[in-house]
Design a protein around this nucleic acid. Sequence first.
DNA 1: CCCTTAATAGTCACTAGGACTATAAAGAGA
DNA 2: TCTCTTTATAGTCCTAGTGACTATTAAGGG
Lengths: 210, 210
Amino acid sequence: MLLVERGQEPYAGRWALPGGFLLPDESAETAARRELAEETGLADVSGLHLEQLRTYSEPGRDPRMRVVSVAFAALLPDPPEPHAGSDAAEARWTPYDEARDLAFDHDRILADARDRVGGRLEYTCLATAFCPPEFTLGELQQVYETVWGAPLDRPNFRRKVLATPGFVEPVPGAARLTGGRGKPAALYRAGPATTLHPPLLRTSREGRPA
Amino acid sequence: MLLVERGQEPYAGRWALPGGFLLPDESAETAARRELAEETGLADVSGLHLEQLRTYSEPGRDPRMRVVSVAFAALLPDPPEPHAGSDAAEARWTPYDEARDLAFDHDRILADARDRVGGRLEYTCLATAFCPPEFTLGELQQVYETVWGAPLDRPNFRRKVLATPGFVEPVPGAARLTGGRGKPAALYRAGPATTLHPPLLRTSREGRPA
DNA sequence: CCCTTAATAGTCACTAGGACTATAAAGAGA
DNA sequence: TCTCTTTATAGTCCTAGTGACTATTAAGGG
């Protein structure tokens, strides 16, 4: 999770999700992409998947004034070192489990985000957006295991992924990733499919329903 | 679909989704519920399921000024006759397929709504929100068939629904709905479950992906 | 008194997938 | 150099879920 340390009141010194205000002539999507580029320093964020989560509009969620926030999730593999924005003291990547006690209602937003992304991993090919352009099935599986917080059986995962047409396709030339510890893994890239049929379901879905 | 005929420019005379503006101290959910009560004349909308869909913020989507809309879907069985609001010439219920050429970007919003609700029928017990407090499995099946636009096999649907713990529970006293044409159907009510495991999947999902 | 309609019960076979074992191919360490 | 460990890959077995059926029951209509 990309978090920024707030430099000003309210919640000065507390960590928060990065964000900003809409400019007069941009959509929320455009603004989110702009803020993402600013915080990460990434030159090209145009190809990144940006997913609108939901809108938070409860009065009083910002003690200063009425603020309506449209939350987005962006998924980037191998993220670069972040750059703190203007009103932030610092910015850094934090594991999900350590991102606690955030400013405003950002704990709630973060939990919703994980929920949503975890759910979309089941029914869409979203997981490849977390991977570099060429990846091994082990890396893809780690995406699922990280977001879902549960281990998966490797042979079954492999069978399922390869049996889904268009999910992944092998890199031509029988390319393999060497340098690891075990047998070199074959390299794949994202296929043309966007949805998974049938879905790749978590066996036991604990946690927040509906 | 509850549509209102616009009485003023822009799009005067065109049908549109009902909506309104946030009051200074209410959340989008509260505002949506208030607008729903105004348009439908329903006294108690507190128990209705209201689902936030997404937020539309493209500049220029309203020619008058910058408007950001948070779209919600409410599901009501046996809806009452609507009452046109202040700025609407008329209000009426319209089948989904006849709700075309709406004002603003409301065609898009409506399509997104159907998509979202159709998807949630697969994984949640949302369908019971479309039914009266006591309903037959045939009525529940019609919800799925209407939203998905495809017929379902009745015995299989029945088996699936009854095999899902907490989805529906029989009304005590072996109550049945008589007065129909065939064999009287047993009455059920919504159970405590909110999610379906495993999901009730559409066999062929055509249409808009991801 | 049939005939139609709709609900309900049950069968059969196929498939996806969970659990598991076995093999292959690399690096690490003795 | 020869294990040993690690990881990828291949394959097996079995069961729950479900699509496609057929059969039966119980109402109303002509």
